[in-house]
Amino acid sequence: MANKLYFTLFEKSGLKPAFFVLGLFLTSMVGISQDSNKYLKSLKQENGSLYFILPTEIKGKSLKINLDITLLYNKDSVNNVFLKFTTSSKQPLSKLDSVQLNFVEKHIKSTAHKLYFLEKKGKNWKSRFEAIISFEDFIALLKNYNSLQSIDLFVESEGEQLNLEANKLKRLIESLSICSPIILTELKQ
């Protein structure tokens, strides 16, 4: 059956055999490269699993953010979800007040925040932050990633309070579209 299909495709393509095989191979590689390994790493642990959504880049006007998400899911305890992200900006961002995920109809706001480090990299400043959202909010994010509009960072720079918005979320939404069904199925949500 498959042989017949390939033979028909080959005949209709009008390509030389070598190019046809190469074309077929490259097409299959595109399929393979879309697999979940590119976006999600999970590890079974005692009483649960560790889920890691690999870093993806999101952008704003004067801001570039590299965001990854970690959840250590334990059946018997309260689960928090860690948003860890690196910001690259022209001004030094020394304190994170909150992260707000803006959906069409609702907002999710982070609770606890931590600065890992702040360092100068060329002309820009690089900050690494951690923010925590609740397990329920994370499930809401996985279920509603399609309606995610923007991410607001409320930060402090040299004593001044800033609101930085990232609204180019294509890569994050692509990543969540792959990770979401896997995590939701495993967690039976």
């Binding site: 790493k41 560790l50 870093p55």
Partner: peptide, 8 residues
């Protein structure tokens, strides 16, 4: 021991 953090 296996912890709760991961980075890549």
């Amino acid at each position: 021991s296996l912890g709760s953090k991961v980075g890549s």
